[in-house]
Design a protein around this nucleic acid. Sequence first.
DNA 1: ATGAAAGCGCTAACAT
DNA 2: ATGTTAGCGCTTTCAT
Lengths: 345, 345
Amino acid sequence: MLDIAVTIKDVAKLANVAPSTVSRVIADSPRISEATKRKVNEAMGKLGYHPNLNARSLASQSTQTIGLVMPSSGDVVFQNPFFPTVLQGISEGAHEKKYALHMTTGKSEKETLEAVVEMVQGKRVDGMILLKSKVEDKIISYLLKRNFPFVLIGKPYKNVEEITHVDNDNFRAMQEATEHLIMQGHHQIAFIGGCLELVVTVERLLGYERALRNAGIELKNEYIIHEEFLREGGQEAVKELMSLENPPTALVVVDDFMALGVLNTLDELGISVPEDISIVSFNNVLLSEMVKPPLTSVDINIFDLGYQASKNLIQRIENSNEPIKRIIIPHKLIERSSCCHLKNK
Amino acid sequence: MLDIAVTIKDVAKLANVAPSTVSRVIADSPRISEATKRKVNEAMGKLGYHPNLNARSLASQSTQTIGLVMPSSGDVVFQNPFFPTVLQGISEGAHEKKYALHMTTGKSEKETLEAVVEMVQGKRVDGMILLKSKVEDKIISYLLKRNFPFVLIGKPYKNVEEITHVDNDNFRAMQEATEHLIMQGHHQIAFIGGCLELVVTVERLLGYERALRNAGIELKNEYIIHEEFLREGGQEAVKELMSLENPPTALVVVDDFMALGVLNTLDELGISVPEDISIVSFNNVLLSEMVKPPLTSVDINIFDLGYQASKNLIQRIENSNEPIKRIIIPHKLIERSSCCHLKNK
DNA sequence: ATGAAAGCGCTAACAT
DNA sequence: ATGTTAGCGCTTTCAT
């Protein structure tokens, strides 16, 4: 590799100043005369100088970089537009403050923790963004113990008061989605959600239950389904659900992609949406308006989740007195054609 | 931030050896006695030592990191599973060799180039992966000029012999897709593709034309459409196409998401797939099997595109004599229900 | 097999 | 306003 490796010394020599002066010009220090600034800048231009960021990071103990752990290859989340969209938001927020992103993957929980330790203690990043919290989260414990800046996207399972996090009000979002169906006359509403170890699932389930209780509707266990699906497993679940003695007339589904799977299964069963059954789903990704019927979906503003995460992380990085925050990103029910009033029988 | 910053010196002191010895143990140098290795490892464990990677990078002139420029927020590619999937592949390949990823975004071409220069000259990365090549690509020129290791995903517009790239045989892939339709009796086949400035579009268009020519079918300009769509623009295009005097009986579409848009427009027009018109699309993302009708789609193995890119980049990084390569990832036509034999009239 | 010492290229006190 | 100098924490000759 061609590498003329121009250093600060070369610039200093050419401009006839000390290396520290060059350093100050780079940092745009106020106490350098305009004259020498010009002189130095000229020299930098001539030599095609670019600072060695490793050296800078080493000396200044800061990297202008945010760390991220990607979901591992096998993870379902990858099939889903959530990850790219939140990444886009994170990237945007970082870019605005001239921060870069540093990412690694972990295939197991153990590997993931190691990756985080390497980033943190290896001093590769100034802060971290966590994409989900697990019930007993070692990464969070680790970061908390070291008092290392991080923000969580989602709601922490514990230590809520000590963790800056950006999240939706998933409880209310789901409550409102359910109420939307109730107002359309539905009483038999089933819940189709993901893994119960994820805090978001728990919150939404609670919101669903609250809406039913408020309306004086009895909760039924058979109406609650947890599936990773996007795949076969879910089909069975839906079939069972629909062959109950009293099948639901409406469904809340926690993800548009899942909803698409449900849609297909219903179609196979000869059940039509929204005539026979109404559906509200979540995320409002592009897909939801392209599918048939277009899905009524709760927009949780995924991009903003990421954007606020990096923005607030950087604030915390640059000011260690920044208080712990909980940032709630607004959601909005987008009505399309997958719901309708229950026909009176 | 709590930071006890254990350094190599602390370990050395505790183990009663010189810092250089510790360094050798970390590098697992063969000329250190097993005894001291044990001693040093023990000391590292006791102190919770982790090497400072910036210091290491500075001293060793290597980062074990791969650079990447993300498509900017506005970019269409973000709406599409291509990016996350290829990223997943890249990440997997990097992870296997213990490389991390470093990413930034650029909002304009100028910013993007600056981001690359910062990574390269700032010595933040050992090599780069480029996600697309433009016709006159300044980034490629820059990397080539500096002789900096990089691999391109896609086909270079020029300097093909000097650039390691991983790509599909897009010409053949599209030729085969078109031939598939021809074998089903279709003669009136339209092409719906993206921006002509992307090399991939050009290649596929050529493959389409070749297939038609080989079959002695006349090419019609009205049958060729270029749209970014996923959105309104495309709808119009499809409507015009279908109101031609001789509308096509089959469509090749370069992307599953686009195909979904087309499907919707056709539905509005009361045209049914595959009865009235057949469709072959590209990418074979999860969506294509969930949509109705399930799409016949060319699987281009997006994950592998990314995986091979990082794998080969790392080979090049670790051995500067590694030859320039062209890696062709196989494609495969996955037949589903969006195509059928043309009914004889 | 191990130690001593000189950098890697930068920042930041401290001097002037 | 600018120069001098001492690190940041590691790797790597060169000694021994």
